[in-house]
Amino acid sequence: MTVTQVVFFLMAAFTVGAALLVVSAKNLVHCAIALVFAFFGVAALFVLLDAEFLAAAQVLLYVGGITILMLFAIMLTARISARGIKIMNEQVGVAAVVVFAIAGLLAYANLKGFPAAVPPLTVQDNTASLGTLLLTTYVLPFEVVSLLLLAAMVGAIILARRERGKD
């Protein structure tokens, strides 16, 4: 057993534990904080897979951006964070069926689709090759995604402005 495997099992347990906490915690702020740790664990798994750029992007966007926005929203709507939230509702049965179906599908795909030993990466600096690919072969989808994000941002700004004009 190498240190990589030790770290993998530690981080996997950490991620699953944090993810369980996200869905089971009664306090909304606790959920959001647990989500931070879950995202962080996923980033650590990316590092173990030699995908450093993905790991950094994961932490930067999900931990540094999305969860902070969530925490912001929760803290600014004062009532939510104080009151406990209901974890279960009447859709629990349907949700359980969907979850088990997806889990089964994933397990099946993992057992069938991947060979026992994946050959190690041949590219040394996959960050550089990722950048090259994004700006040559995949430049059109890259630009389309940028445009989409820009449109979403402009839309959000317009929505926020109009609300202020009404008061």
Partner: peptide, 8 residues
Amino acid sequence: SISSLTVV
């Protein structure tokens, strides 16, 4: 990316 954890 790691410095954004400080904010959390």
